[in-house]
Amino acid sequence: MITYREQYWLSIADLREGRSQSREDRVALYRARSEVTRAIDRLALATADPALRTPASAAVWSAIELADIPLGPVTDGRFADEVEAALAERRERSRNAHTVLRNAATVYIQQLSRGARRD
C-alpha cells in the first residue's frame, strides 16, 4: 500500500512538473497496486478477525481510490483548485487510514503474543 501511494504521488509530482506519464511509470503503479491486492489476500488467509481486516480494507481502498480523482490539466504546476483540494483530502484520509491500520495491527500482534486470539 505504501509503495502504491508512493508511485501515485510521484506520478502527480511528474504531472505538476509538466512530465507525461511513461509506460514504465504506469507499469510501476499497476505493479504496486497488484502488490496491495496480494497483501490484502495474504491477510485474508491469515485471519478472519474484523478488528484487523476492517481497517486493512479501509486503508487499501483509501489508497486505491486516489486514482479515482479526475485530474484535468495542470497550469503553472497546479491542478484546478477543486482537484488540489481533493488530492489533499484524500492524501490525509489515506494517511489516517494507514495509521489506524498500523495501530490495529499493533494491538492484534500484542494480543497474539499473549495468546489472546485464536482464529
Rank of each mutant, 00 (worst) to 15 (best):
A88E: 15
D14H: 11
A67P: 00
E35I: 01
R118A: 07
S113N: 15
R117Y: 08
E89Y: 05
T75E: 06
L29P: 03
F79D: 01
S57G: 15
S62R: 04
E92F: 04
L43V: 04
T75P: 00
R31F: 02
S62D: 07
R78K: 12
A63S: 12
A13W: 06
L45M: 13
I64H: 02
R53P: 03
P73F: 00
T106V: 04
W9P: 00
E92Q: 15
A97C: 08
V36R: 00
A39Y: 00
L43K: 03
A51M: 14
T99L: 14
E6H: 15
A80P: 00
P50G: 07
L43G: 02
V27H: 10
A63H: 05
R117I: 15
V74I: 08
I40M: 10
R95A: 09
Q7K: 14
R93F: 06
E84N: 06
A13T: 13
I64A: 05
R102Y: 06
A97M: 10
E92Y: 04
P55R: 04
V107H: 04
A58M: 03
L101A: 03
N96S: 15
A97N: 05
T75R: 14
R16K: 14
L43T: 03
R118L: 09
Q110I: 12
E84M: 12
S11H: 03
I109Q: 07
P50M: 09
L101F: 11
P55F: 04
R78T: 06
A51W: 05
Q110E: 15
S22M: 07
A59K: 04
F79R: 03
Q110G: 11
D81V: 14
P55W: 08
G18A: 05
E17S: 13
A59M: 10
E35L: 08
A97T: 06
V60H: 05
L87G: 01
L87K: 00
R53V: 11
D76E: 13
T54I: 12
V27F: 12
S57E: 06
P50F: 08
A104L: 03
E84L: 05
A46R: 05
T54Y: 07
Q7V: 02
A88W: 03
R118D: 10
V107A: 13
R114D: 11
S22R: 10
R16Q: 07
R23I: 10
V36D: 03
D119G: 14
A46L: 13
L112C: 11
T106P: 00
A86L: 07
L10I: 09
R26T: 11
A85R: 12
R114T: 06
T37V: 15
V74M: 03
T47E: 04
E6N: 14
V107I: 14
E65M: 03
W9K: 05
G115D: 08
V36A: 10
R95I: 09
F79M: 01
V83R: 02
R19N: 12
S20Y: 09
L29T: 09
A63G: 14
E82Q: 09
A104I: 07
D25K: 07
L71K: 01
V107Y: 08
E84R: 05
R26F: 12
